[in-house]
Structure formats: structure tokens, C-alpha cells
Design a protein around this nucleic acid. Structure first.
Length: 412
RNA sequence: GGAGGCUUCGCCUAGUCUGGUCUAUGGCGCCGCACUGCUAAUGCGGUUUGGGCUUUAAAGCCCAUCGAGGGUUCAAAUCCCUCAGCCUCCGCCA
């Protein structure tokens, strides 16, 4: 436990402070219980008593009342302190996760191979050039209306998004997920409980006047869906496929991925979310990964799967597998999907529990991207482009694009 | 945005005016047992959640919990304040 906390760069002293606050909470709680029990006894005697006796009882009751309030206050204070410390603590890291920063991932598997454009005799165009020629992407007007990192999907670009979303929801539904359209604005509790108000807080949009947060993923409303609930073990696993807009401030990424729609402030995403028993979480994690691989394979994209390193896990994941698609004009694999096993981390914070054999305990939550629309469009356009600037539509998307097999450039 | 009503231990519900006998009523559902040659019916018992303690265990004890938080009081489901959610009406709007 301590080794993995160090791997995250967290203060080990935090754990000790937490344990001491928790002990203080416990002991003042016991004192409160004892005082309260005596107070209740007096409450029964007082109405029956009279005269001298009653005056005595009332005097003792007055003293007790003050003592109860003091013990209560101390317990509340210790509890708040413990909670404050607890929220600073990230999830425990799975022992097999590679230790290190962003570049210290390990590659688990690779699927397909990057296209050899030299052999085909033409230079690949990037997604923005292709998207503009197809009349699919308009970043200039996005910037005019909303600023940098905003865009319009136009014409066939808009249709492409709808096709992707429909195909993704169809795959998820086929796999047994319940399709969900979720709120994009949530209260602080949901944001905090999913672990987005720690180090990630600077990337979250906040509506100060109303104290609402704009979600960066439907993981947040899908995790919040069952908060403060006890789920019967028989009904697990619960699997939801959420579709929602996602908002990200992208603070600290100035100058990174500024061209096109690879990194944007607002996009739509289909997300898989599972509630399972903790002992099933690793198997479910692999299942989520398999569904992501099925999706990317269907789109005929070359990709690899990485085991994300400790420093890049975020607060809530104990392990994270990313699928990275090959982006020809960048000559690199880039993240398209991400599957995280949060085990009991979010469930504890959101008070989501399961009941099996009369025992109640936290369950595990997992999330995995199925289709983050703009990045998927980037990968599709670049990988399936043809020498004349048209783009081939993979088989699985054709039913959702009116049977269209190729997207052709438009003259303006 | 304005006015009013509501929120009770799975669901429904009594209790709130008039603070203590509420250890929260009753019904439904559910669980167990008994009886009935199956099922049903009937009878009896049980049935919120969290924390702490005792115990080999089974089980038991204490505290909190009547939408949330605060206040008044020796004492709050009950009185006062703030907030949230739901419902109705008015206004506005897609």
C-alpha cells in the first residue's frame, strides 16, 4: 500500500494523520453514546418526578446536556478532518501496473499494422485537411463563435458522428448494456465521489453561480446513478452505456494538439460503465477492454493496448488500459479509448453498496470508453483516406450512413 | 421568477395543531416456524441503515437514523430557521 502511494508521489504521512483522526472520531463517538444513554434515562424519570427530586434530576440533566454537546462537536470535528484527508488520498494501485510517468507504460498487444502510404505512392493528409475537403469539420467558425479548441461538425461530419454513436450504442446494447442519456451538469457530490475534484480539478468546468459541474465524461452521472443505494448481488453486474457531451478545460495542455479536433473542450462520447462485485472487477476490466477492441477492430483501425503507468492513472483508477490508434500524420499511436478499474474507490465515496447473504459492502465500479467521437473521426479519416482525398467508410458504419461506402470531397 | 402543499424504518400509512407514555401505528410485500396429504388459506414470530461493544460461534447490548443541516429545550417525528427534492397553480419559455 505504501509503495504504491509513493509511486503516486503521495505523502505517506497522510495515511498516519488519517488513522489518528479516525481514532479520535471513534473515541469521542463512544463517549457521546454513553452520555446520550444516561440522558435518555433521565428523560424518562423527569416527567414522573416532582418537587425536590425533580429539581435534582433537572440539574443533572442540564450538566449532561452540555457534555453531550461537547462530545458531539468533537466527534463532528474529527469526522470532518478524517473525511478531508480521505479525499486527498488516491486509489490503491494494482501491483502489476508499471511504475513511472506518462511514458513508462507497457504495451500489452498490437492489432493491425500502420498503412504504408509510401508504397501506395501518396503522402497522407491530416484529419483537418481531409475533414475540410469533405465539408465535415469547421474549426475557423468554431473559434469565431466559441474560441480555440471548439469546432463544428458539418454535413457529412455531423452524419459521421451520428453513425458512430448509433453503431457504438448498438454494439453495447447487443452486449447487454442498458443505453442511457445522462445529465451533463452534476452537483459537487457526484464530481467529488468519482474522484475528479482532486488533482484533476483544474480540468473541470464549474458553474459558480449555481454550483454545478460540467461533466468531462458520462462516467460521472453513471456512477452517481446508484449513489446512496444498496444493490442486491443478484442484479450484478449492472452495465450501462452512457451517451453525453463531455467538457474539458484542457488546462496545462497549451500548445499541445492544437491543430484540428484531436483535443477539444467539448465532445460527445459513448461510455461503458459497470457495477460488479469487487472479486469480479479484474475479469470485468478485461471484458471492457475486449469490447473496446471489438469496436476498434470493426472500424478497421490499427491500434495497440497499453498498461498505463502509475503516474498517469488519475485518482480513481487502480489500473487503466488504453487503446491507442495509429495516427499516420503523427507517426504515433494516440489514445482513443481508456478502460479503468476503480474497484471500490468510487463506491465508497458515493456510498454504493451490494448486499449478498445479508452482508452489505462496497461494490466495484469500472468504466471504459467505447467511442469518443472527435478522436475516432480523426483516426477514421486519416487511416481510411485515399489518394484522391476521399475516405473509405468501414463496413460496420455503412448501415448507419445510408449505405454510403466512400465520403467524397465537396467543391465549395 | 411568484404562491401553496407534501417528504415517517422496502411500498402505502397513523402520529406533528397540544414536546416526555413514540422503545414510531396499521396494512401490503418479504423471511422463518406451525398447521394443512400440493398450492392457497390461517396462526405465531421476524423484517431500515450506519457506527461501537461483547462472543469460538449463534446471538445479544449500546448509540444514531422520521428528506438534509442548524436552533430552542432537561427533553424534538412534534416548535423555530435555512436548504434540497416532489406535487399543484400563476408567470415565462423550446
Amino acid at each position: 500500500m505504501r509503495a504504491s502511494q509513493r509511486a503516486r508521489g503521495e505523502d505517506v504521512g497522510l495515511v498516519d494523520a488519517l488513522l489518528s483522526a479516525d481514532e479520535r472520531r471513534r473515541s469521542s463517538g463512544v463517549r457521546f453514546d454513553e452520555l446520550r444513554a444516561e440522558q435518555k434515562q433521565l428523560g424518562k424519570l423527569i416527567p414522573k418526578a416532582a418537587g425536590e427530586e425533580k429539581a435534582e434530576l433537572l440539574k443533572r440533566a442540564g450538566e449532561l446536556s452540555a457534555a453531550v454537546k461537547a462530545a458531539d462537536a468533537e466527534r463532528d470535528e474529527a469526522e470532518a478532518e478524517a473525511q478531508r484527508l480521505l479525499l486527498q488520498l488516491g486509489n490503491l494501485v494494482h501491483p502489476e501496473v508499471p511504475v513511472g510517468g506518462e511514458d513508462d507504460f507497457t504495451v500489452r498487444e498490437t492489432h493491425g499494422a500502420p498503412r504504408d502510404f509510401a508504397a501506395e505512392g501518396f503522402e497522407p493528409k491530416d484529419h483537418l485537411e481531409l475533414g475540410q475537403a469533405l465539408g465535415a469539420i469547421d474549426v475557423e467558425r468554431g473559434a469565431k463563435v466559441s474560441g480555440s479548441r471548439f469546432y463544428y461538425l458539418t454535413g457529412v461530419g455531423a452524419l459521421l458522428e451520428l453513425a458512430l454513436v448509433n453503431a457504438a450504442i448498438a454494439q453495447a446494447t447487443e452486449a447487454g448494456f442498458i443505453p442511457m442519456l445522462t445529465p451533463a451538469l452534476v452537483k459537487p457530490r457526484a464530481m467529488e465521489g468519482t474522484g475528479f475534484l482532486g488533482q484533476a480539478a483544474e480540468n473541470v468546468y464549474h458553474l459558480e453561480k449555481d454550483d454545478y459541474y460540467l461533466v468531462g465524461t458520462s462516467e460521472v452521472p453513471l456512477a452517481g446513478y446508484h449513489m446512496d443505494e444498496i444493490v442486491e448481488a443478484d442484479s450484478l453486474p449492472l452495465r450501462y452505456a452512457g451517451f453525453s457531451p463531455c467538457f474539458r478545460r484542457e488546462a496545462g495542455s497549451y500548445g499541445k494538439d492544437t491543430r484540428g479536433i484531436f483535443r477539444v473542450h467539448q465532445f460527445d462520447k459513448v461510455e461503458m460503465f459497470s457495477y460488479v462485485a469487487p472479486e469480479d472487477s479484474e475479469a470485468e476490466h478485461r471484458r471492457l477492454l475486449e469490447w473496446e477492441k471489438q469496436w476498434l477492430t470493426g472500424l478497421e483501425l490499427p491500434f495497440r493496448v497499453i498498461d498505463v503507468a502509475t503516474g498517469d492513472l488519475g485518482a480513481s483508477a487502480s489500473r487503466k488500459f488504453d487503446c491507442e490508434a495509429w495516427i499516420p500524420t503523427q507517426g504515433k499511436y494516440r489514445e482513443l479509448t481508456s478502460a479503468s478499474n476503480c474497484n471500490e474507490f468510487q463506491a465508497r465515496r458515493l456510498s454504493i453498496r451490494m448486499r449478498r447473504d445479508k452482508k452489505v459492502r462496497p461494490l466495484a465500479t469500472l468504466n471504459g470508453t467505447l467511442c469518443a467521437v472527435p478522436r475516432t473521426i480523426v483516426a477514421l479519416l486519416e487511416n481510411h483516406q485515399q489518394a484522391d482525398g476521399s475516405v473509405r467508410v468501414p463496413q460496420v458504419l455503412r448501415p448507419y450512413l445510408g449505405g454510403r461506402e466512400v465520403l467524397e470531397p465537396v467543391s465549395r
